[in-house]
Design a protein around this nucleic acid. Structure first.
Lengths: 260, 260
DNA sequence: AGCCAGATGATCACTTTTAATCACTTCTGC
DNA sequence: GCAGAAGTGATTAAAAGTGATCATCTGGCT
C-alpha cells in the first residue's frame, strides 16, 4: 500500500462520517503515526480534508452535500413559502440578483411566471437551475467556492460594480438585529456586501433557524436590509427591526401577511 | 510484444482495480523495471493513468466509468482521443482556460490526473463537471448564452482582461487555414478572441468534421493558434499550417504523433 | 494559573523509488 | 546494407517515503 492509495482510502474512510483520527489511520493502514500525520498534512495542503487536532475532518462539498440535503428536507416547506412570498416582490422587466444558499435557490423555479427579467447570480446552483430560462441570465464570475457553490472574490466584486439591480435576494448563515448578517467566509461576506450595495431593494430570505445564529464574518447590518422575509417572527423582533426601517414579511404555506 | 501493445494491456491490468505497481508490470510483461517505468510515464503524459510513486493508478472519472467498455459513436471517441492528447500539454500547477464546446468539455474529466491547476472557464457545462474538483476553479462571468451554454459579452471580456493563462483550450464551429476559426455568434467570437489573447499557448481542439466548415463570425486566424489537436489530418494541411507556425498534434486512441 | 497527557513538528537514519545516463539491440526508411 | 530513430536493460546519484526520537505546543483538568 503506497502513499496515493492511502490518500484515496482515507477519503473512503471519511465517507461515512465527518472525522477520522491519526491513530485510526495509522492502525488501519499499518503505518506509523508519523506517516499518517504526514498523509493528512499533505491532503490538507491540497484541500482534500481539513486538519484538526488529532486527525482530519471532511471539508467542502463532500460534507456539505448530505447536510445541504438534510437541511433541504427539514426546512423545505419553510423555504418554499419564503420563496413564494419573495417572488411577489418581483415585477415584469425587473433586474434581480440571486445570492447563494438553499432558500434563495428555491426562488429560481418561481421566476418562470414573470416576463423579461434580467437575473444576475453568483450561485452556480441557481445558474444551473436557470439554464433553460427564457429570461436574460448573467453570472458574476470569479473564484468558485465549493462550500457554498458560489462565485466570490475580487473578480466577482469588480464585475458587480458594473451592474445595478432592482432587488437583491440575499441568503445568510446567521442574523441578529445587533450583529446583522453573518457568514462563515470573509471573502463571501465581502461579495455579499458588494451585491447588496448595488441593489435598490435588499430582500433577506431567511428561515427562522438563522435567527441569532452567529458566524465569523459580518456581511451587513440590519439597516442594510429593506425587507426581511421569514416564516416565523415574534412581535419584539418586528419592533426592533422596524427601528432599523426593515419591513418584515411573514411567509406561510397558504398566504402571507405583512407587518411593519 | 511492443510498446503500444503493452500500453493497452496495462490498462487492461488496471481495469479491475485502482492501482498497479512498477514491479508488477515488469514481471507481467517480462521487461525491466526501467521499461515499465517509461511506459507508465508516457501513459501518464497522455492522461491515461495517474503516475504515483511505485506505479500507476486510475483516478476520478476514469475509475468510476468503465471508459473502455461502452460503445460510442466515432465522433465521441475522436473527441476523447483529442482531449487525452490535449491533456498531455498540461503540467501540474498550470493555469488553463477551457472554452465552450463538447470537445473541450471532454477534457474536464482528465484534469483529475493533474495537481494544483487553476482552471478558468466561460463554459457553464465545464464548471458543472468540475464542481467537485480539488483544483482552483474560476468562472468568467458575463451573459449566459443558452445555445452554447457559455458566458459571453463585455462583462466576460472585462474579467478576462484581468487574467493570464498558460494554455487556452479552444473549441470552434469551423476552421480553415485561409479563413481561420469561425463561430455563429459575433459576441461569442469576441469573447473567444479575448480569451486567446490572454494565453501563452493557444491549443485548438477540433475533430476533423470542422475542417472547412464555415460560420458567420471569425474568432481568429490560423496564426493565432499555437497547436492544433485533431484526430485526422493530411500532409498538405500540416504543410499549410506549418507555414503559420502551427504545430499539429494527431490524436489516436492508443498513441499520438507530432508533426511540424 | 499551573499541570499533564497527548499531539505536533522537526530532524535523523534508513529504505525504496525515480530520473538520468550509457551502451546495446531492434526497427525503419532509403 | 546503412544510417538514424526508437526501444531496452543496467548503473548510479538524487529524491521521496518511512519510522523513530525528542523538544515543543495544545487543550483540558484541577
Amino acid at each position: 500500500m503506497n502513499r496515493s492509495d492511502r490518500e484515496d482510502d482515507i477519503l473512503q474512510l471519511l465517507s461515512g462520517r465527518t472525522s477520522v483520527g491519526i491513530a485510526e489511520i495509522a492502525t488501519h493502514f499499518s503505518v506509523s503515526e508519523a506517516t499518517a500525520r504526514r498523509d493528512v498534512q499533505q491532503m490538507a495542503g491540497s484541500g482534500l480534508v481539513r486538519r484538526v487536532r488529532g486527525g482530519a475532518t471532511l471539508r467542502g462539498i463532500s460534507r456539505l452535500e448530505p447536510l445541504f440535503r438534510d437541511k433541504e428536507d427539514r426546512a423545505a416547506r419553510a423555504k418554499r413559502a419564503i420563496a413564494a412570498s419573495a417572488s411577489s416582490l418581483i415585477r415584469d422587466g425587473n433586474t434581480i440578483y440571486l445570492d447563494g444558499g438553499s432558500t434563495v435557490l428555491s426562488l429560481a423555479p418561481l421566476l418562470d411566471t414573470r416576463r423579461n427579467l434580467t437575473i444576475v447570480t453568483n450561485s452556480v446552483m441557481a445558474a444551473v437551475k436557470l439554464l433553460d430560462t427564457r429570461h436574460r441570465l448573467l453570472l458574476t464570475g470569479g473564484e468558485f467556492r465549493s462550500l457554498s457553490r458560489t462565485l466570490v472574490g475580487p473578480l466577482t466584486e469588480a464585475l458587480l460594480e458594473q451592474l445595478q439591480f432592482d432587488i437583491a435576494f440575499m441568503g445568510t448563515m446567521g442574523f441578529s438585529v445587533e450583529r446583522g448578517m453573518m457568514t462563515t467566509d470573509p471573502n463571501e461576506a465581502f461579495t455579499k456586501a458588494q451585491a447588496m450595495s448595488r441593489a435598490g431593494t435588499v430582500a433577506l430570505l431567511m428561515d427562522s433557524s438563522k435567527f441569532n445564529a452567529t458566524a465569523l464574518a459580518r456581511t451587513g447590518t440590519a439597516s442594510d436590509i429593506d425587507i426581511l422575509i421569514t416564516e416565523a417572527a415574534d412581535d419584539s423582533l418586528c419592533q426592533q427591526l422596524a427601528e432599523h426601517h426593515v419591513l418584515v414579511q411573514i411567509a406561510t404555506s397558504s398566504n402571507k401577511s405583512l407587518s411593519h
